[in-house]
């Protein structure tokens, strides 16, 4: 709180604080561990660049801003674009109507190919037809496994959230879980609901759902703790995103529960948690691969007429499980933010 006695204090206070900060920096008050200096430059994936003519590809997803998962999809798409001499136009909107507008926008720009996610296929039907009419090849990725063919798309890369959830449920059976709680960080999100539904379908034990406020970590932590205390028979916490799994580790210890934790999706910190044994396993649908393959496929189609799956079968990018047996291999890619 500010003092009442200060007359014209703001400027001086700011200067003083800035000087103090600068002094701290200048005094070489550096950290001897961690930080960027410690982060090894692991080298980026670099490859040659195709000599084919420059083309433009639009990638339109239903990403909400700041979502880790989609960030990796985008990185994969960018890697493919860089290799294939493609100009990548990325846009996203979680609202289906707005996403359809973004596809229309790409058609108006006369791009050479469109990659689109089908979180709400019905909303995208018309605009996909328009693109095809305009002679622009359209490929699907991520969600829409059951609808891409109906929409006349060229090919599809990904894995339904439901399929991932089902694989997760089977894995829970393998590890002998009895009662799981599925933690949804955004109530009403289609993909997250499908993941939990998939788990419920194949898991032989009981699955409960718990909603938490994903934008507020302290409340995520408290709510999971509360649930574990309310029901001490829960032996597995199923998180639907890496940050929430890491928070669940704290909740489990706060609640003094014996529950184990497994999660969908990966990130750097999660791989170290798997190494330490805090988290049992993660199921990864390889978002990087989805972005990469979708963009690369449009290049192949344009330059060599290839398409995967013959218009009949989708290309599945998962589920890939990460646990203590293979985490070392994957950790170094996760550290770069590409797994």
């Amino acid at each position: 709180m500010d003092r009442t006695s200060r007359r014209r204090p703001r400027r001086y206070a700011a200067i003083a604080a800035a000087t103090a900060a600068a002094a701290l920096l200048a005094a070489g008050c550096s950290s001897s561990s961690g930080g960027k200096q410690a982060e090894e430059d692991s080298g980026t994936t670099s490859a040659g660049k195709a000599s084919t003519p420059r083309m433009t590809v639009a990638l339109v997803t239903h990403q909400a801003p700041g979502d880790t998962f989609w960030d990796i999809v985008r990185k994969g798409a960018q890697a493919a674009a860089a290799k294939d001499n493609i100009k990548l136009v990325y846009s996203s909107d979680p609202n289906a109507g707005n996403q359809a507008n973004l596809v229309q926008n790409a058609i108006d720009q006369k791009v050479d190919g469109i990659a689109v996610t089908l979180a709400k296929p019905d909303a995208m039907k018309d605009v996909v037809a328009k693109a095809e009419k305009a002679g622009i090849p359209v490929v699907g990725l991520n969600s829409g496994l059951s609808d891409w063919k109906k929409l006349g798309m060229l090919e599809f890369f990904g894995q339904d959230e439901t399929v991932a959830g089902e694989a997760f449920g089977k894995k829970l059976n393998e590890v002998g879980a009895k009662k799981a709680v599925c933690v949804i960080q955004e109530q009403g999100n289609v993909g997250l609901t499908q993941r939990c539904a998939g788990v419920k379908k194949t898991f032989d034990g009981t699955t409960e759902t718990l909603y938490v406020n994903g934008t507020d970590m302290p409340s995520v932590k408290s709510t999971i703790t509360a649930k574990l205390k309310q029901d001490s028979s829960i032996d597995y916490v199923v998180a639907l995103g890496a940050p929430y799994a890491l928070t669940a580790v704290q909740s489990v210890s706060d609640a003094g529960s014996k529950a184990k934790i497994a999660t969908f999706d990966l990130n750097k910190d999660l791989t170290s948690a798997i190494k330490k044994g805090d988290i049992q396993f993660a199921v990864d649908q390889q978002p990087y691969l989805q972005g990469y393959l979708a963009v690369d496929s449009l290049w192949l189609y344009k330059n060599n007429g290839n398409y995967s799956g013959g218009g009949e079968q989708p290309v599945l990018t998962g589920p890939a499980f990460v646990d203590s047996s293979n985490v070392d291999t994957i950790a170094k890619f996760a550290a770069k933010g590409t797994r």
Binding site: L25, C29, S31, G35, K36, A38
Partner: peptide, 10 residues
Amino acid sequence: SFQLSVNVWT
């Protein structure tokens, strides 16, 4: 703190 690798108090 991370980018400059300085003590987190900075």
